[in-house]
Computed example of a mutant assay.
Amino acid sequence: MSSNKNALIRYKTLDKCLKNKYRKYTLEDLIDECSEALFEFEGKESYVSKRTIQLDLQNMRSEKFGYEAPIEVYERKYYRYSDPDYSIHNISVNESDLKAMNNAIQILKQFKDFSMFKEMNGVIQKLEDSIHATNQKSIIHLDKNEQLKGLEHIDILYESIVNKKVLKILYKSFTARESSVYTVHPQLLKEFNNRWFLICLYKQKMYNLALDRMENIKADESLSYIDKDLDGDEYFKDIVGVTVAESMLPRNVVFFVDSANAPYVKTKPLHKSQEIINETKDGTLFKICVQINFELERLLLGFGDTLIVHKPQKLKLRMEEKFRMGHKNYQDLSILKEGAIQDQ
């Protein structure tokens, strides 16, 4: 169990004890109560130290979490709230807090029709009712597309990851002639460039399957789930996009962006490893350290003639070939079938 969740359980337990008017609690009693509460949640012995409870009481008294609890020691050994009506669950919310919560609700409401968040509708409504939220229009608009193909699969995939279930997925890639059944151990869901992917274990290797290519999904109860315990931040740290090659080491990619477009790359780095090597009046030389994959190539190509790859040589040559073929396509319009395009 995470330390944050442990702390919340202790605070809740301490609050219950301190507002109890019919029993006297010593510090040792509070330690025992918190240890017992954690045991109920974790199902195993979990002794809480004296120092931990003393720090918890100190935090509850302070402004650190907004509690400012009126905890007092009486008869030199017993703990209670000096205000018998106080509880950490009865904390008042000021106007500034209400505005912040209302803004957060407006953002959450943008997801209310999204399949994965349908069950949040009731929660959002309760929040609106409890803080008297206004019906103001949201001034923060998130990029989303509820009509994306494959979104209907998110619920079952999400639940399968949470409940650790093996899945049989009928899948047809863009290059395949026929659909195939993949028996996979789902690990993570990943969104990139407005498309969703399932990161899964298939035949002892990690794969990413696009949700929009999935035709049918069902659980396979006959197989034991293999949990790779993936951390998304760690798993994707060396890439742009979703394609991770387990055997590939990240490479230094050096590229030049002209002066008109360099500010866009500075303020929105292509990867967290991005560094500036050199700047001139003509532009900026950048470096990132990533695996070279399809998504990186597409990203670099998207800058068109404003970006030039310098290293590694293999990527540079591949980019040159892409632009050469693109130029050829524009020069040789005969490759388009007659009538495919019309002058506008």
Rank of each mutant, 00 (worst) to 15 (best):
I156C: 07
D212M: 05
R195C: 02
N278W: 11
E40K: 13
V309T: 09
W196Y: 12
Q291T: 00
S224R: 10
S247W: 10
L148F: 01
N20M: 02
L270T: 08
L333S: 09
E275R: 15
I71Y: 04
E72H: 08
Y225R: 03
Q342W: 09
Q274I: 10
I107W: 10
H310W: 06
P70C: 05
S130Y: 05
S138L: 05
I71W: 06
N59G: 04
A37N: 08
L317I: 06
K172T: 10
E320K: 13
L167R: 05
D343Y: 14
L249D: 11
F303T: 07
S138Q: 01
Y158S: 13
E234Q: 10
G339N: 10
K144S: 12
L223Y: 00
Q58M: 14
S259I: 10
E33S: 12
N208M: 04
L201I: 02
Q147H: 11
N94R: 03
P263W: 03
Y67T: 09
N193T: 04
I88G: 03
Y74K: 09
M325F: 04
M319F: 08
K112T: 09
K112N: 12
L198P: 14
L188R: 08
K328Q: 14
D143N: 12
N6F: 07
V184Q: 02
S96R: 09
K322M: 12
A262I: 05
P186W: 00
E63F: 12
T183A: 08
V123H: 14
E321P: 07
C289E: 15
G66S: 00
A340R: 14
I107C: 04
D83L: 05
K21H: 11
K126V: 09
S46N: 12
A245E: 13
L8F: 01
